[in-house]
Design a protein around this nucleic acid. Sequence first.
DNA 1: CGCCGCGTTGAGCCACGTCAACATAGGTGG
DNA 2: CCACCTATGTTGACGTGGCTCAACGCGGCG
Lengths: 199, 199
Amino acid sequence: MIATHAAPVRVTAASFLHMRRALVGECIYNIGEAGIAWRVVSGAIRLDRVAGENRSFAGLARAGDVIGAETLLFRAYSFEARALTDCELEPWLARGNAPSRESLLQMLAAAESRAADALALRAGEAFERVRKLIMLLAGERGHAAAARVGIPALKDMAEMTGLTVETVSRAMSHLRWAGVLKREGRRSGLVFPENLQLQ
Amino acid sequence: MIATHAAPVRVTAASFLHMRRALVGECIYNIGEAGIAWRVVSGAIRLDRVAGENRSFAGLARAGDVIGAETLLFRAYSFEARALTDCELEPWLARGNAPSRESLLQMLAAAESRAADALALRAGEAFERVRKLIMLLAGERGHAAAARVGIPALKDMAEMTGLTVETVSRAMSHLRWAGVLKREGRRSGLVFPENLQLQ
DNA sequence: CGCCGCGTTGAGCCACGTCAACATAGGTGG
DNA sequence: CCACCTATGTTGACGTGGCTCAACGCGGCG
């Protein structure tokens, strides 16, 4: 579980705006809407740019990342956010507080690192791309124990990797066949990163 | 030309660290090096992540963008920067000055927007990708007048778009044939975005 | 129950990767 | 100045990885 702010005495207005949950596929916010910035507590979120009729993948946020920080500047979201897996969010900063320079610099560095990760999802062969995506979602933790991952819809994986649903489906089958991924219900799996010797 | 800081009387230490130029292909900084953040005055720069032996494209900076801001946090660059075209840089912030929250938020928003642009370079068909890259380099200005663009090496364009040099070469020939791009010396061209009806 | 969205699998085809040959531009040394 | 060399760009021929299209299974829902 997630440790809530340990401030039992003083209850500010902000603490009423508590954790928010979103289910797979749910829209968290739309472009142009007013709102606050959120920290992703668990799950994964997809950010999209909307140009006319078509959405285009613009970023992937995972636990620990902050999304929607542009509202501090523009007072409106400039991307659309949708839940790739069930996820939990908490408001970033108590209402009205300004972020420190330090934390802004950290977010900047994190944003650039995430951008590089997202870019990497569109390089290399199909199987590699899907593997990278799953590893990213699994959190790239040490190769020791198996990790539980939420598996997004194939359509989302396809749009993130720049492949088609069919190709992603085949790659996922291959990952399972290779023992890297094990089914656990429809929407989650166990990852065994060590099983990657063969091809 | 670029207006230099209009401070003729007081000459600070920072103003000695003046504009820097880099030629096509030149390395601007390496990962791990100490240094300052730069604002791109003209030209285009490619940021790369280095993992072991292989570089991977991690971002594209154009005139107006700030690169290397992570040095304010880590005291070292976390990406490698190389000039895609001849370019001019000026130090961002006089030495020792801290950036305002406002400007950090702007950089954050800009970084996310650039990330989305870079991602878009790896979506769609080959010709479309190369076209988008050229348009991006040209600065997406109004479709009115022809704009001069610095053309990066095909190898760089290939790595940015996730294509091969041969395919990029063919796409460039096609752009020229379609009248969208006109040669002007080896390393630059004129863009006519309006010539895009056909195909 | 039938419907609908999602995932899976197969068959065929095409855009792009691969390989190879050649053109061109700079750079260097004589 | 030319002779030569290398890096870079161009073009063609060919093979293939992934896209397209189609059929089907499965689960959730009215």
